[in-house]
């Protein structure tokens, strides 16, 4: 079978929701395909099939390569799409570094570093995180400018989806900052019921960072809703994914009622287009929401779920 046919097969598998099988083929094809057009398709398929946790560094490199190819070819809407994908992928690297940075200063009553090695690691990680955060924000801004110029609704919708996910990731990071060292932080870790917004607002009002939290929630809700509407306007089945992602982020923020509402919308659209793989994912998500997040994977520890986001 030619490389092109293999790639088509992998893309079909990805559409059917068989991401692992698709990823296995794409990994093999990665070193074989060099022709720019095919390479772009391969990268696009890889970005949606390979695990964003396990293969994060590789996916960032691929997105960077795609940005270069599209810039040279002058395909601005694709360039914008890959920029937004890279911005989203960078968040994982930021989160890992941030986790390490916070663990270096996590001790209650912390007043200073015990070793110069810890201090140096902290400084390096902080500067790397800052650099990556700036890069991620800049990429999203540039991508949106390019999408607005090209007036391509689909591209804009995808960029908004990525921006929504970035905001959601920022929301979680800020939340962790608020929790450190406080009694509420300990309760939050021990008890599920302390993670609802009403408790967060009540207990953490003294912390300035907490006031930023609703801003992030509003931001990702706005972006993902707008993405969904844009995709509905152009009659695209991906609208279902936009609402699904919104439900997923709202679930992470313990806004279950709203999550259920958007999941319902996502299911209606998926039914309209007969997207069986999507319906299966929506049903799985329904169960997670019904269980009120009692079964959340530990990504830092290497645990993963294949159907978290689309």
């Amino acid at each position: 079978m030619s490389n092109e046919n293999e790639l088509k097969k992998a893309m079909d598998l990805a559409i059917q929701g068989k991401r692992q099988e698709a990823a296995a083929i794409l990994v093999v094809l990665e070193s074989k395909i060099k022709e720019p057009n095919l390479r772009l398709r391969l990268i696009d398929a890889s970005l949606s099939s390979l695990s964003p946790v396990k293969n994060n560094a590789k996916l960032i490199d691929l997105a960077e390569e795609a940005i270069k190819i599209t810039t040279q070819a002058g395909i601005s809407n694709y360039q914008a799409h890959f920029m937004a994908r890279k911005a989203d992928l960078l968040r994982f690297q930021i989160t890992i570094r941030w986790h390490r940075v916070t663990s270096l200063t996590l001790t209650p009553g912390w007043i200073g570093f015990a070793t110069e090695a810890d201090k140096m690691e902290y400084e390096v990680l902080t500067s790397e995180t800052k650099k990556m955060e700036d890069e991620s924000d800049n990429l999203l801004e540039q991508a949106l400018t390019l999408a607005n110029k090209s007036e391509d609704k689909k591209t804009k919708a995808y960029i908004l989806m990525d921006r929504g996910q970035v905001s959601s990731s920022k929301y979680l990071q800020r939340k962790t900052d608020c929790l450190r060292g406080t009694l509420y932080g300990k309760l939050w870790v021990k008890s599920q019921s302390c993670r609802y917004p009403i408790f967060e607002n009540f207990f953490a009002l003294i912390n300035v960072t907490v006031r930023e939290l609703p801003v992030y929630v509003k931001s990702f809700k706005k972006d993902l809703l707008e993405a969904g509407k844009l995709l509905e306007q152009i009659d695209d089945s991906a609208a279902s994914s936009a609402y699904f992602n919104l439900a997923n982020e709202l679930k992470t923020a313990y806004r279950f009622r709203e999550a259920q509402k958007h999941l319902k919308k996502s299911r209606t659209i998926a039914l309209k287009y007969g997207d069986i793989a999507m319906i299966v994912k929506i049903d799985e998500m329904k169960k997670i929401i019904a269980a009120r997040n009692k079964d959340v994977p530990d990504y830092i520890d290497g645990e993963e779920r294949s159907n978290d986001t689309m």
Partner: peptide
């Protein structure tokens, strides 16, 4: 554990 650095102990 992540208990590291100089810390005030009650």
């Amino acid at each position: 554990s992540p208990l590291r650095g100089y810390a005030e102990w009650s």
